[in-house]
Design a protein around this nucleic acid. Structure first.
Length: 925
RNA sequence: GGGCCCUUAGCUCAGUUGGUUAGAGCACUGCGUUUACACCGCAGGAGUCGCCGGUUCGAGUCCGGCAGGGCCCA
């Protein structure tokens, strides 16, 4: 016969075994038949599959899983799907490098295309070396790569023990998700929240796409101020009677041909006389006005700046508010356009511009500086400065601003009432921790425009719109054609517009498809609608939406969280979820954020294999929501030790109670033995009178009841750390003190190694200990289950039915019922302290803890005397004391009590009566 | 420049509504082959709670200021 309880317990290998069992048993499968009140729904962040998962993901996803497991044990049906964000630029970039291709939408589809190479992991391939392929071929390659990535991600998440319902996995690029994204877009379009506009747009010249405000980041970059002279025009000379040049300082002299005005602060006395008058731009001789605006900074440079279309976002504001002309020079490729802009039209100006045409920003700047020097209109050398420059967060060239036709969705950036409504939604959302709500508020208050959702890219959800072509073959933008909702998803670049045939594409009188796709966030802001079946399963959607929980990182409050609130507000007039649990960062030991470039990233799977999943989860669960945590393998070792301890302590309890003897034969026998030993309490029965009779045992259960209450309350408040801490702390007391104290009593005279018969008659004292041990162990397993799903499930399987992960979360009532009336919970600590005092004298005498004490006086603080007395037999057994005198430490100070004082002459001078100590110790030989 | 968070033992962190002598784990040192566990146990040393001021009988905790660190937004 094979023993069901292993001889030597280990946490290694539990992951695969239990994942297989959970999958086979459908342990985490969502039951759609449950009511809304019974359901707890989680809107899980879909990780970007083109990136690699790192320790930070393991950290925050563990937090979510702890919540999911707790809620499930509380009897709620947990809706917990996982998705992959495969759509978007990061995937494109990875596909380019992995397969050595790039997308050229003008090329025809090539069936059966095989990429030039496979697996160029990590290395980037120069654009010139990439093979151009059609959009459809490119998308196929994206799908091929993400499929591989997603398999690896799922394997990691399963290994970590996420209790996800894997039958509901979604991808942001899958047809259903595309249909949801398109339908939400069309509805916003119909309501006027989505619109198209021709406007200056932040533009990444590398990726050749527009980007949104939420995707910007400032980076410090070196630049230089160039001091350049503008000559006064006739009106200025007349007004001032002077012929002096106006000197400006600019970091972007190459934009001189795009200059449309000079600007100074309205209060600036130096320039007030010039307002409304004109100057001529150097080299190009274009007459531009001097204007006043509050955003001009008198302290910066010479206090007067040139406005160009467009050098930065302030230029856009000036251009818009001051109603200035457009004189753009930069193309979408980041190079100077071939033709000079309007206004640059004298032969000299055109000749000057010709020297810049076709150049990049960098070389145009070099050239124009030479030209300014030759013309003697630049003073001195450029003055180097370091200044913040706007970048696309995934790009490595500064953003330019180009004017283009783009799609927007209203987000409150241009509409005060919508902004107010969204601020209110944010205030209603329960952020954990609460101060994260401030980040939302700050972001919404700082919005400067609507949400730009169109991207000039390839792998994403197409914007579902066509335009009719007039007789000249020009698109009629305002007469756009949209599909019916039940036709979704559509791809206007492939599907003919409704009412047209494919042969009318691009023909005068025919139609043209919108080529732009939506930004990734325009789809992932709809994850509640995607997973909840908004389009396809209204009954399900009504049950899970609004969702209970949105867990995520603090870095994407401005993007994912905010945009999801926007979409839900616009479409449903409600918050998308009740709670938002925000996880912190993982910092390396130098308190720096872990990142790839610093070379300090550890692969998650390696970590899980080294320490075990329970151990890594313990580390993650030890950090509170919203708090940055150090990457600390020491904590993982502690977690591993805890998991091991759970296994070993369980082995002891089951051995000492005899349950193991029965359970080794079969689970059924084990269940019967457990029911017998615990008096049926664990199976929902009432506590039999006289089951747990010993004060120490009752005290343990009373203390455990308190922990159950407090841990439950902590988890309800999304404070998993406190719950874990409370449980862990009592568990170690249980192992180190309680178990040691009751060990002898529980064995009830059984010889070492002797199998105990759980059904045989034993002393009432032993029965009391065995019941308390069993009930306590079973409760600890349930308390630990959300954090240590593997070790607890392993032990559970030895002697309990079904799975611990669907077992009810413990409540304190049954424990209190067993503990009886007015148990003194402090008794465990008092008895433990007595035991520690005995251990200390052996430790200080440098003898084995097994050494017997023939006799010892234990001086106990008055408040604890009764408690130590109550556990005297257990203390003597655990401390191997033959004769124990318990003395009131206070009374012992009085020589009159025993008439002689300490017989060994020690301790007289020690007057501290609050600490337990010993006197008159006699060791056995 | 604005907002938010943080600063407690060598390290990582707790510290509830202000209340005895500020706690835990790790690390460190010493001891111990104890029949659940050497992936173990026992014991031990270690802190001017960032700095200055205020409120209070009493401040790690509340208030103001300063310094340092981090994140977000300009």
């Amino acid at each position: 016969m094979t023993a069901r309880i292993p001889e030597k317990a280990t946490v290694d290998g539990l992951e695969d075994r239990w994942n297989e069992a959970w999958e086979a048993q459908g342990t985490y499968r969502f039951d759609e038949t449950k009511d809304r009140e019974q359901i707890y729904s989680i809107d899980t962040p879909p990780p970007t599959v083109s990136g690699s998962l790192h320790v930070g993901h393991v950290f925050s996803y563990t937090h979510t899983d702890v919540v999911a497991r707790y809620q499930r044990m509380c009897g709620r049906e947990v809706f917990y799907p996982m998705g992959w964000d495969d759509n978007g630029l990061p995937t494109e970039r990875r596909v380019q490098n992995y397969f050595g291709v790039r997308c050229d939408p003008t090329l025809p589809y090539e069936p059966g295309f095989e990429p030039p190479h496979v697996g160029g992991e990590g290395k980037s391939i120069k654009a010139a070396d990439q093979q151009p392929v059609s959009r459809r071929n490119f998308v196929e390659l994206c799908e091929r790569l993400t499929e591989e990535d997603e398999k690896q991600f799922e394997a990691l998440w399963r290994h970590l023990g996420l209790s996800v319902d894997w039958s509901r996995t979604y991808q942001t690029i899958e047809p259903d998700a595309q249909a949801v994204a398109q339908q939400a877009f069309l509805r916003s379009l119909a309501r006027g929240e989505a619109y198209q506009a021709e406007a200056p747009t932040l533009w990444d010249v590398t990726f050749r796409t527009a980007v949104a405000q939420a995707e910007l980041e400032d980076r410090e970059r070196p630049g230089a101020y160039h001091r350049v002279a503008f000559e006064p025009a006739a009106d200025m000379e007349e007004a001032t009677g002077r012929y002096d040049s106006v000197w400006i300082e600019t970091t972007r002299p190459e934009l001189l041909p795009a200059c449309v005005a000079l600007v100074a602060h309205p209060d600036d006395k130096r320039y007030q006389p010039l307002f409304g008058k004109h100057v001529r731009t150097p080299l190009f001789g274009v007459e531009v006005p001097v204007v006043a605006h509050r955003l001009a900074s008198p302290e910066k440079g010479s206090g007067i700046a040139m406005i160009c279309t467009f050098g930065d976002v302030t230029d856009v504001i000036w251009w818009r508010e001051l109603d200035l002309p457009m004189r753009s020079v930069l193309g979408r490729d980041g190079r100077f356009a071939a033709d000079a802009p309007a206004g640059v039209d004298t032969p000299d100006a055109v000749a000057a511009y010709a020297q810049l045409a076709g150049k990049t920003v960098f070389s145009a700047q070099q050239r124009i500086v030479e030209m300014l020097r030759e013309a003697d209109v630049m003073e001195g050398d450029p003055r180097p400065v370091s200044h913040p420059v706007k970048f696309y967060e995934k790009g490595d060239k500064p953003l330019e601003i180009v004017t283009s036709r783009q799609w927007y969705i209203a987000n409150g950036g241009r509409d005060e009432s919508l902004r107010g409504a969204l601020l209110e939604r944010g205030a209603d959302l329960d952020f954990v921790p609460a101060h994260m709500g401030k980040r939302y508020e700050n972001w919404v208050n700082g919005l400067t425009g609507d949400w730009l959702i169109s991207r000039q890219r390839f792998f994403g959800v197409p914007i579902p719109v066509w335009y009719p072509l007039d007789d000249a073959g020009e698109p009629v933008w305002d007469a756009r054609i949209v599909p019916a909702e039940d036709a979704l998803p559509v791809d206007p670049s492939v599907d003919a517009a409704p009412g047209f045939t494919e042969d009318q594409r691009d023909q005068p009188g025919g139609f043209v498809g919108e080529m732009d796709i939506m930004d990734t966030w325009a789809t992932s802001s709809l994850t509640p609608q995607i997973v909840g079946g908004w389009r396809t399963d209204p009954a399900l959607f009504a049950k899970v939406f609004p969702m209970d929980l949105r867990p995520q990182g603090q870095d994407i409050i401005r993007t994912w969280l905010f945009s999801t609130v926007v979409r839900s507000h616009l479409e449903h007039g409600t918050l998308p979820w009740k709670h938002a649990a925000i996880s912190g960062w993982i910092l390396d030991p130098d308190r720096k954020k872990m990142s790839k470039s610093k070379g300090n990233v550890v692969t998650p799977m390696g970590l899980l294999e080294t320490h075990g999943s329970d151990a890594v989860r313990y580390w993650a669960a030890s950090a509170r929501l919203g708090t940055d945590a150090a990457f600390d393998e020491g904590q993982m070792k502690v977690g591993r030790r805890l998991a091991m301890k759970v296994l070993n302590a369980s082995k002891f309890v089951l051995g000492a109670t005899g349950i193991a003897t029965a359970a080794d034969a079969s689970l059924e026998e084990g269940l019967r033995a457990t029911a017998h030993v615990s008096g049926g309490v664990l199976d929902g029965g009432d506590a039999p009178a006289g089951l747990v009779t010993q004060p120490l045992d009752r005290a343990l259960l009373a203390g455990l009841a308190d922990v159950v209450d407090k841990a439950g309350a902590a988890l309800e408040a999304y404070d998993h750390t406190r719950a874990l801490e409370l449980t862990e702390s009592l568990f170690w007391t249980f192992c180190d003190d309680y178990v040691e104290l009751v060990k002898t009593r529980a064995y009830d005279g059984a010889a070492p190694g002797e199998a105990i018969d759980p059904f045989a008659e034993c002393s009432p004292e032993a029965a009391s200990a065995r019941a308390a041990l069993t009930i306590a162990l079973e409760t600890f397993l349930r308390l630990f289950a959300p954090v240590l799903p593997f070790a607890t499930e392993e032990v559970w399987s030895w002697f309990r039915p079904a799975t611990v992960h669907r077992a009810p979360w413990p409540t304190s009532e049954p424990l209190r019922a067993v503990a009886g009336d007015a148990p003194d919970a402090t008794l465990v600590d008092a008895a433990g302290a007595a035991l520690a005092t005995l251990r200390k004298i052996k430790s200080e005498a440098k003898v084995s803890q097994r050494t017997e004490l023939v006799s010892v006086d234990l001086l106990v603080p008055e408040s604890k005397v009764a408690a130590v007395f109550a556990a005297k037999a257990d203390v003597m057994a655990a401390g191997r004391v033959r004769a124990l005198q318990i003395v009131d430490a206070e009374a012992a100070l009085d020589p009159g009590v025993d008439g002689e004082g300490p017989e060994d002459g020690s301790g007289v001078s020690i007057a501290d009566t609050t600490v337990m100590r010993t006197e008159n110790v006699v060791f056995a030989d």
